[in-house]
Amino acid sequence: MATLSRDDVAHVAHLARLGLTDEELARLEGQLNHILDQYAILAQLDTDAIPPTAQTIELENILRDDVVQPSFTPDEALANAPERDGDFIVVPPIIGDSEP
């Protein structure tokens, strides 16, 4: 099993879109490696022939009729938006660093 370096921790934080302070990165490096050490126990088990379990009740293909049903009004859907313009949510620029 792997050991995480500080750079690895920073990389995972970026993948998770978590802005962490240097202090947090340092603390997480120690804590995550300690937790990963606990995972090593799983290597003792030979699981090559064992199928994975993703869910415990064997329901398959749960479908409903494709019928239009009442949904939120625009006002209900937008009520929690941090920034709103009419029936739109205002978001910061997604491409590039400059204003659109």
């Binding site: 995972y39 799983l42 088990l45 699981t47 064992i50 199928p51 994975p52 379990t53």
Partner: peptide, 14 residues
């Protein structure tokens, strides 16, 4: 190494 392995061990626990 992690997620798939854990799902297999989950089968053994069940």
């Amino acid at each position: 190494a992690y997620y798939l392995k854990a799902q297999k061990v989950r089968t053994l626990i069940k």
